[in-house]
């Protein structure tokens, strides 16, 4: 069985305590709201897309450590990427958190620290909320939900 420390790794606790890119973007080109009705996690994602590049991305909201840390790490990971690279990263992240716990995961840098949620099935939605919200923002959907 996975130890709690695998879920709450130091890097996750750090991003929870001091989330990166935790603010609104006044001149965002894309914006979406994410909501997890199970635990009440809410976040608003802001993006500034310049041509094909995600020039800036940030978020606001309240949620559990997993959802907040995941949102924080995601913004770090997406900034400066092309839209198509970002979409590919969404797919890779999604594959990682939904893969059976006994399978080895691809190295996604800091994002790999969230692979521990696979042992806590109800928490997978916490880790993926920000990413689904990012995708909704790209598609110009106003709201997304993990339900």
């Amino acid at each position: 069985m996975t130890d709690l420390n695998d879920l709450y790794q130091e890097v996750i606790l750090d991003h929870n305590r001091c989330p990166r890119n935790f603010h609104a973007i006044a001149d965002a080109t894309h914006r979406a709201e994410g909501y997890n009705p199970l635990c009440g996690d809410r976040l608003t994602l802001y993006m500034k897309v310049d041509g094909d590049v995600i020039a800036d991305v940030a978020f606001e909201g309240a949620g559990c450590a997993i959802s907040k840390a995941s949102a924080s790490m995601m913004t770090d990971a997406l900034k400066g990427r092309s839209v198509s690279e970002a979409r590919a990263l969404f797919d890779r992240f999604h594959r990682m958190v939904t893969m059976p716990p006994d399978r080895a995961v691809e190295d996604l840098g800091k994002l790999s620290s969230l692979a521990g949620v696979r042992d806590f099935p109800v928490r997978i939605k916490c880790a993926s909320l920000a990413w689904h919200t990012f995708k909704a923002a790209l598609e110009h959907e106003q709201r997304t939900s993990t339900e």
Binding site: L38, C39, I66, F120
Partner: peptide, 23 residues
């Protein structure tokens, strides 16, 4: 302080304790 109820629920569950977290 500083800990979301959902994280509390997950951690105490590892000690065999069933509580409810949420709204």
């Amino acid at each position: 302080d500083g800990v979301h109820p959902h994280d509390i629920g997950t951690i105490v569950d590892r000690e065999g304790v069933a509580i409810r977290t949420g709204h």
